[in-house]
Amino acid sequence: MGKASLLTSERRNRSARGTQVRRERVRSAWLFLSPLLVGLLVVAGWPLLRTLWFSFTDANLTQLDQAQWIGVENYLYYQDGAFYGVLADPDWWNSVYNTLFFTVITVSLEVVVGVIVALILNANFKGRVWVRAAILIPWAIPTVVSAQMWLWMFNDQFGIINYLLMGVGIISEPLAWTASSSLSMWAVIIVDVWKATPFVALLVLAAMQMLPSDCYEAAKVDGIHPMRVFFRVTLPLITPALLVAIIFRVLDALRVFDLVYVLTSNSSSTMTMSVYARQQLVEFQDVGYGSAASTILFVVISLIAVVYLYLGRRQLGISS
């Protein structure tokens, strides 16, 4: 692309008319870009800076005008032998742990199951169109709807899941899926894996369908075991697509809110960083403190994204 545009710009430079056209180009390019740039600054850039500012004040939702600058006290400060602030709050660290646990488990499961589902969909069988349509559904319907649906299926007394598991004999008495502290995180994980695996599968399937078929024919002629072909040929070739799927899933998982909120509300065993920040901001009305938590969340997500993109830059084809 660089070479082509260089050539065309050289050609244009030759005549005065060309220069004029180019100047008009630049002007309309800026004209075309500015509404979007202004829009993003207003709804993303400015609020983010405001949150950053709030995080250094003692702002309260009921008396925002009287907010005083208090430095880093919302983050961490030391007084009379004890630390205070978000970074000294065990609840915050609990939510960090929950978020990371949720992210690692769901993304790993989604990648493994997603690849298997993609392999299945890539094969030829009767009714493939229907299977693909059925797989689309979890991804397409509203998260609130799927959360409510699963809440109903997880219901300890009338839920179909307990009924089926007891019928098969895996459990002997009903489990309180969303209420028990040891199970509720797994309930959230199950729903997320159900909902997001199709996304990974479809991305991987797209990559698989672009693979050259002669590799596979050669492998078949040589009598190489399918598992070996998968790990030596297919997997390396679909890695770029997998990396794209993973970064999308990781970013979504780190910010997870609505699923957790509908399924388990503010329960501490599933509280994620977003749920923690919302509770501080809205329920405790502590804007300063909640903003500090939000700022840390944003920094953590950006850091992970930057490190990921840097490490995977060759695979993802990022030039600079």
Partner: peptide, 30 residues
């Protein structure tokens, strides 16, 4: 009509997706 800053602009625009909704909730609410 790409310029030298096009790549940066694009990355900056996409990076606004990293912002957690809860992080801009209060300013937008206000």
């Amino acid at each position: 009509y790409p310029s030298k800053r096009t790549d940066f602009t694009l990355v900056w625009m996409v990076s606004t997706k990293f912002i957690p909704a809860v992080g801009v909730l209060i300013p937008i609410f206000l």
